[in-house]
């Protein structure tokens, strides 16, 4: 199987603080990887390095065979291949839901408006929010907004989807509507990297779970293995805390 994402010995510094310590991670095409770990362990940093919202300082990152870091043209190519869903949505509040999905296609690919609108309606329908297309983001609930974010990313026809805690800013009753959409997406052979603490979701769709702590990937395994019989002491400690809470 081809590698969708390959990280080798990746280091990342914020000033003198080292946020990532030689992280290795390989994700195959169509694979679903869940990343979990305590707050501040570097999960966001890792996922943001994959589409270069943060530049890494050491090691090597390849996305679909393209090496990142030296050629800026590669950067644009990678960003078009990798869609991103943020914890705090980051919809564009000054335009409608439909326009949120149309504008990026027009601005970044030069897609014709008409075609972009058709695509947008298609994906809004797929995340079951088409009837809200003419509203503004501020008029939607958190769960609805996050589904629009997913539709917006899908409109760019990405090969990889990155999720950074997509449900942790949501009220509990809205979490499942977003997770349902993500489970749907997992059924389409999309390559997915998801930072989340939703273990139910991880068990249902993840091929692999990565446990991170203090900027390092501590342990990797199947959901059953990580959640059932964690090998590393640190993983066990974290899981017992999460289960208790």
């Amino acid at each position: 199987m081809t590698q969708a994402i390959r990280l080798q010995e990746v280091d990342k510094f914020y000033g003198t603080f080292q946020a990532l310590h030689g992280v290795d991670l390989e994700v195959s095409t169509g694979e679903r990887v869940v990343i979990c770990g305590p707050s501040g362990s570097g999960k966001s940093t890792l996922i943001r390095c994959i589409n270069q919202l943060e530049e890494h300082d050491g090691g090597r990152i390849e996305v679909r065979g393209v090496k990142l870091g030296d050629d800026l043209r590669n950067l644009d190519a990678v960003r078009r291949e990798a869609g991103m869903v943020f914890q705090h949505f980051n919809l564009f509040p000054h335009v409608t839901v439909l326009e949120n999905c149309v504008m990026p296609q027009v601005l970044s690919r030069g897609t014709k408006r008409k075609a972009a609108e058709d695509t947008a309606r298609g994906y809004l329908d797929r995340v079951r929010i088409l009837e809200q297309a003419d509203k503004f983001p501020g008029q939607l609930s958190g769960g609805q907004q996050q589904r629009v974010v997913i539709a917006r990313a899908l409109c760019m026809e990405p090969k990889i989807m990155l999720f950074d805690e997509p449900t942790s800013a949501l009220d509990p009753e809205m979490i499942s509507e977003v997770l349902d959409v993500m489970v749907d997406l997992a059924g389409t052979a999309m390559t997915m990297v998801v930072v989340t603490h939703e273990m139910g979701f991880a068990r249902r769709v993840a091929d692999r779970v990565v446990y991170m702590e203090a900027g390092a990937a501590v342990e990797t395994g199947t959901p059953d293995q990580i959640f059932g019989t964690p090998r590393d002491e640190r993983t066990r400690r974290f899981l017992s805390k999460v289960m208790a809470g």
Binding site: L53, R79, F92, M103, S108
Partner: peptide, 25 residues
């Protein structure tokens, strides 16, 4: 800052981000 990050992640070029996303807001 999430606004420019979202635009960046969607591959929208810098000046178009300024014109269509940053300035209107």
């Amino acid at each position: 800052t999430g606004q420019t990050e979202a635009a960046e992640a969607l591959g929208i070029p810098y000046w178009k981000t300024i014109w269509h996303i940053v300035l209107p807001q």
